[in-house]
Design a protein around this nucleic acid. Sequence first.
DNA 1: CGTGGGCATCAAGGTTTTGTCAAGATGGAC
DNA 2: GTCCATCTTGACAAAACCTTGATGCCCACG
Lengths: 232, 232
Amino acid sequence: MTEPLRIVIIEDEAAIRRFLRASMGPDEVEWFEAESGGEGTRLIAHKNPHLVLLDLGLPDQDGLEVLRSIREWSQVPVIVLTARGKERDKVLALDAGADDYVTKPFSIAELLARIRVALRHAARAMPATEAAYEAGGLSIDFDARQVFVDGEEVRLTPIEYRLLSELARHAGKVLTHRHLLRTVWGQAYEDSTHTLRVHMGSIRSKIESDAAYPRFIRTETGVGYRLIPEES
Amino acid sequence: MTEPLRIVIIEDEAAIRRFLRASMGPDEVEWFEAESGGEGTRLIAHKNPHLVLLDLGLPDQDGLEVLRSIREWSQVPVIVLTARGKERDKVLALDAGADDYVTKPFSIAELLARIRVALRHAARAMPATEAAYEAGGLSIDFDARQVFVDGEEVRLTPIEYRLLSELARHAGKVLTHRHLLRTVWGQAYEDSTHTLRVHMGSIRSKIESDAAYPRFIRTETGVGYRLIPEES
DNA sequence: CGTGGGCATCAAGGTTTTGTCAAGATGGAC
DNA sequence: GTCCATCTTGACAAAACCTTGATGCCCACG
């Protein structure tokens, strides 16, 4: 994983949040914490996390409802983390779309292992991520998070990098505006096409020398953008 | 799911095998039972199951070794089902590639729910790429949204592309003006045959070299258009 | 032999989509 | 708190695209 892992935790007890934070290095993981279901779903929509940890006993609404409303629009892996150990609760949560169910008190090593399993599944649902991309003068080192044009390093902002990476991971294919917005920004931004254009513009100004004849990124009018797989 | 679910269970206690068999209707599931690791891996290779239930305490070899050897060549979902409840065992199994870990004695309803989760994951891992079209010098790559004539790329506008795609999806068949207008423009435009003609003209000017002898798109007077499936 | 329907082509005009620039807004580092 | 990099938003310009009308061809039919 080249970019830091984004995890949303929806849990009203601060002690548990602190415990989890401490259990995983802060360098590897970017934590987003919510104390209520509403705040949690908002965070998921805005931060586009890789994983969600969800407590079922929340102050504002039942965790099961939160889970169902997330599943209406997002496929993000959700691990339910709760004190409710009844068989019925487990079955309901798993069938509502939870990817795993861990009962408190839990073993931290086991939870971490289950998180790895969930991330493994999510990674497999996407096309294989190579360690690097290289085509026609443009190369991306996903491990080092670096981009080069004809050997020269180009400095990209986080959003620019994620946009270009997404294009590179599907090099040659057209990615729709909606897809890019959902992948890079998250569900809540899927109509912000104008923002997308501005960012594409700034990527281009950094990697394209002649704006009239793009070497790398081609606009598919009315649809989206496409990374040109070979120089032509 | 039109074909029955195939599940391999690797477990030396016959009582548990019988119990699981009884828990799921025999009409929906085809069970394959193995009492040892070696037999189990052979069954997986031979039967290509949708899911594997694996006991860790086996007579011939350690279940963890079985799991690792399965993972060398197969991505089939594996749920570990065992009496070993130690944290260390769980972490080892999950990191070795297990998709879930259920400790005996287990609740059958929970196990079934976890099986459903595993199958859900497996179904999602399948890529959904649309095939390309290729006939007599004309090829369409639906992923890249690109059209080639004799290897040369041809750039089409959104409407042109959708028109040609619709023709290609029903290659050889006559599509009526009305059908094309409804599919590409929408119901409200189904009488704008003149607009349709102009667009067909511009597609032709891009993909046909000799307008008098069309290689690809044939006009069916009074009816509509047809894509010629083979060069003749 | 003339006429009209169906079709193809061309160019003009208007509309939608995209690109660019710059001004705030945001948020983290110090 | 200020500074700095980044992101979002708005206004406008540029480009791409679509529709429409005019015109001419071909051919069936009277």
